[in-house]
Design a protein around this nucleic acid. Sequence first.
DNA 1: TCCTGTCTGATTGTCTGACAATAACGCTAG
DNA 2: CTAGCGTTATTGTCAGACAATCAGACAGGA
Lengths: 224, 224
Amino acid sequence: MYEDLQVEHSSTVDRVAEEIRRALFAGRFEPGMPLREVALSEAMGVGRSTVREALAMLVADGVAVRTPNKGVAVKELSTADVSDLSRARVALESAGVRRWDDATPEQRSAVTAAADSYAELAESVTDPGVLTEAHLQIHRGLVGLTGSRRLLAAADAYNAELRLGLAHLDRVRGNVAEQVRSHRSLVTLLEAGRLDEAAAELDRHLAAAEVSLSDAIGRDTIDT
Amino acid sequence: MYEDLQVEHSSTVDRVAEEIRRALFAGRFEPGMPLREVALSEAMGVGRSTVREALAMLVADGVAVRTPNKGVAVKELSTADVSDLSRARVALESAGVRRWDDATPEQRSAVTAAADSYAELAESVTDPGVLTEAHLQIHRGLVGLTGSRRLLAAADAYNAELRLGLAHLDRVRGNVAEQVRSHRSLVTLLEAGRLDEAAAELDRHLAAAEVSLSDAIGRDTIDT
DNA sequence: TCCTGTCTGATTGTCTGACAATAACGCTAG
DNA sequence: CTAGCGTTATTGTCAGACAATCAGACAGGA
């Protein structure tokens, strides 16, 4: 009778982790910057154990790194990471594309709706974070076509890493119009059932994303 | 000069998590059984915070579940979980198979060596846990062909869930000889470069694993 | 100059103890 | 038999403590 009722059970640890995550995605912490337990606990008015648990979550998510006896630091994406991420994206998302015919209507519309939403935002919104978020939703939807929650969770993890990487170079983002075109073409091919061509388009799209991101990172790491 | 020297940095938390994991894989804890913090800390002679961190790791791994204010319990695999796992396996491992030609010699030999090792163990070893371990190594190797550490990590996570599921029904394990045949055929097709046929063989192999596992679980859950 | 040993301060890893909030269980009264 | 009420067990969170470890400074010796 009351199936649709839900109360959010947000623990302190979750809120702390979410807060730090937001700061990371907003680019407020430099890559490599240490996340000190006492400083964070005092700043947020919570116990150190709570912060520790939150940091462990971020490490499990892949957006932070723990070095034994040295603590947790904001993850630095190397070009090796970017190419690894790219391989993971290609594998999962093209697996999704290949299963378009077996996907449920909800799973398909998650893709098309996200693409529409991105195209719409691309014209009006200026905040790069919002656009990144919308963009990743499309790719998340593609993984969703596989119908596996576990793969979606894996995709969420690497999308978080991507957001982290993009947080510091939103200015150098590539041609948004080209992105919109590529997404639209992908959706069109999917809906036409031309899955091989769709996979090829996706491959190109992801390859372009990889070079653009790894170029930007390469430039950055030379600077610093 | 000293690049190859390494010291293992094992924290107490890691050891505790590993110990509990072993017990889980050995089937010493029933699915759904709660993992009490105080009891574990007293049994293992460590602080409660340490146990909490270890449990958080197990939850992140997917072998245990946390319910707010109720604690952590051994994960129960539902048939929905099994089919989800199966979809994830198909996606990741066939992605690996499709990239056989691009894989490094090390990545390829990880697959073939694991298959050989499994075939060898199948004749001599009786301990089902050891055999399961060897079996999963093969499938891990297939994911490794994608060349992405992140996908390997995802595969490790779902393999841990599989081991958990298999821990309680090792007796009903299917025909080992058939397994060996299927693996051998898969490796042969791969080395011959007949990737499409290899992918088809893999599909059959994984589909068979799914029905066998979900049958066993279905039977079990009716009993209890 | 370069290396080594030592000192010091900061930080993590771990333990202990505490307490409120929550959930599970049994009891009692109606 | 059910609603309501205590009791108990357990988690979530905090505070404080201490050893182990690390980074940097600094002095002394080859």
